[in-house]
Design a binder for these strands. Structure first.
Lengths: 334, 334
DNA sequence: TTGTATGCGTTATCAA
DNA sequence: TTGATAACGCATACAA
């Protein structure tokens, strides 16, 4: 265990030499392919020798030989959004069926600084979630790429969720409840998924001249949303309902409403997006557009695996649903 | 672009053949080591040919040759805790200085099911955060390992934070404010970091016979904490102060207190752990033990890199601080 | 039942 | 200024 000379890992060849067999025998035994080929005695000797010498396979060599690394990278915009945990779970589970491991790589620091340096890993594929293909160009160069919840681009397979439909669902529900002054709290991030919500909102209110729509772009942080919403909710012609691009943002609306003495669900109806765990934890429960995030990951991995088989057509957007809780109610009579 | 025959990547040898040069020349050029060695004309031809042929370097081959993969894996217990984003940021930044990329691997699904299959990647090291070394044995086999925020074990370098000290800080502050009935809302996960908090709490109250201590083990979810705290805070001899293992859990205490009409900061003092962004977003602001998570990641990566140099001694636990906000106040006179 | 030989694609040394 | 050539450690076809 001297650390004066450079560390050199134990190779299969080393084990072979010590065990008095050939390197191929070691490989066979260690890969469990010695059944009926290598004698039990040799198997035992090799196994024991490898163990004793602390042999660890060299993955790089293995990958080179096999032409595959068995790992896929999931690129996400940030680690601070639990939504991506669900996407990861779905994709990882599906990947496991194909012997693929899944690691996560956040492209931006939460402090908004420049992206971390791209890992120079050997990858079998990349799944980019809620970000355009060009953003992951560095890491995805040369490997199959699937985009999730972002603009379908020609040549780049994508799996999307029907977020527009979700917005329509939310909007129609509020209209049915009699709301005519409706605000859309928009994430001020330039992401396809948020553009979809915005367009669907605009489209939905466009055909309804009786509706007074208000667009409120906000940073993602709840505290910023609160700050931004205080004047909006204080105005005499304040909205009676608010749709938020994300459940986190909705909690900011909750804070603002509470500060102003407005009762959520009565004075003000609120709808969020994602149906995160927090949605059911706040009081009253937050009505939210449930996004099939785990499915999204699952389908993404499925598509990535299918890429070898020549799958090219993008699937239909995954359906979403409106989960109703106490945060919405009939428009207050003013 | 026929997909009838198996895909075969373009190699440097292919480029060499087409460009009419040797493979070593291609390597030299593409690695920018042709300065003053390869003629500009050749450099141009090779570069252009590689570009045109869509050449992508084979990382596995490169890693095998170089004996390093340039990537480190950060193992975390879950993706649903923003704390790990900070750890990642710190470690990634430091790693970048050494040409190391950092990918994240969550060991448990948020639904509590079994761990995802370990990625069979080529790794230069593993950093395990808030989990014991044996938990990551699969992925860390054969590569340097550093443990963060977990029990220092012999032979396994660890970087810790002074969480015990943090608990002492919180407890003493509450005692100084006159509180004598204090509850500790404990995460019921078997993790070293939580054991530290528990022991420090027990130790702190042990020497104070005038203090009535209450231990409330809870699942991590705020809703569970609320449920668990309702009876505790309804009791006639309810605690006047609560220390929580995590800021998320503290929000559960907030909910319970609000349901019961207790005013945080007056009727009930609350202290959390982590000083997450939410701590300053709730009302009143949550007093919290600030953990140097980004530093933790930074030091972890630093140590991992130093491992080659024979660094063995664990550093001192990283200092923590109590960040005071409106959630604490003098003990109510009963 | 085991060993020999080959090649995966790269980097780097050395010779030309 | 460039080209042969030799590893890196492994998996596997084939020979023995």
């Amino acid at each position: 265990m001297s650390d004066t000379e450079p560390f050199r890992a134990v190779t299969a060849t080393d084990v072979a030499r010590v065990a008095g067999v050939s390197q191929s025998t070691v490989s066979l035994v260690l890969n469990g392919k010695g059944r009926g080929r290598i004698s039990d005695k040799t198997v035992r000797r090799v196994t024991e020798t490898a163990q004793r010498m602390g042999y660890r396979i060299n993955q790089s060599a293995r990958h080179l030989r096999l032409g595959t690394s068995g790992t896929v990278l999931l690129a996400v915009p940030t680690l601070t959004n639990n939504a991506f945990a669900a996407v990861h779970a779905g994709a990882a589970r599906r990947g496991a069926e194909h012997g693929l491991g899944l690691v996560v790589f956040p492209l931006s620091a939460e402090d908004g600084t420049s992206p971390f340096s791209a890992p120079q890993q050997a990858l079998d594929g990349v799944i980019a979630c809620s970000m355009p293909a060009k953003t992951v160009a560095d890491v995805s160069a040369g490997v199959p790429l699937v985009v999730l919840d972002d603009a379908p681009a020609p040549g780049i397979p994508a799996v999307t969720m029907d977020v527009s439909g979700g917005m329509a669902l939310a909007l129609n529900r509020l209209l049915a409840l009699g709301h005519r002054r409706i605000a859309h709290v928009r994430a001020d991030r330039p992401a396809w998924t948020f553009e979809q919500r915005a367009q669907a909102f605009d489209l939905g209110v466009h055909t309804r001249p009786d509706v007074i729509a208000q667009r409120v772009p906000c940073p993602f942080a709840p505290s910023m949303v609160k700050e931004r919403m205080m004047p909006v909710l204080s105005a005499p012609d304040r909205p009676t309902a608010v749709v938020c691009d994300d459940d986190n943002m909705a909690t900011g609306v909750y804070s603002a409403a509470m500060s102003l003495g407005l009762t959520i669900g009565a004075d003000l109806s609120v709808i969020g997006f994602n149906d995160a765990p927090t949605a059911s934890q706040v009081t009253p429960g937050l009505t939210s557009v449930r996004l099939p995030l785990e499915d999204l990951g699952d389908q993404g991995m499925r598509m990535l695996v299918g890429l070898r088989g020549g799958v090219t057509a993008d699937p239909e957007p995954l359906p979403v649903a409106l989960v109703e809780r106490g945060s919405i109610g009939p428009a207050p009579q003013v």
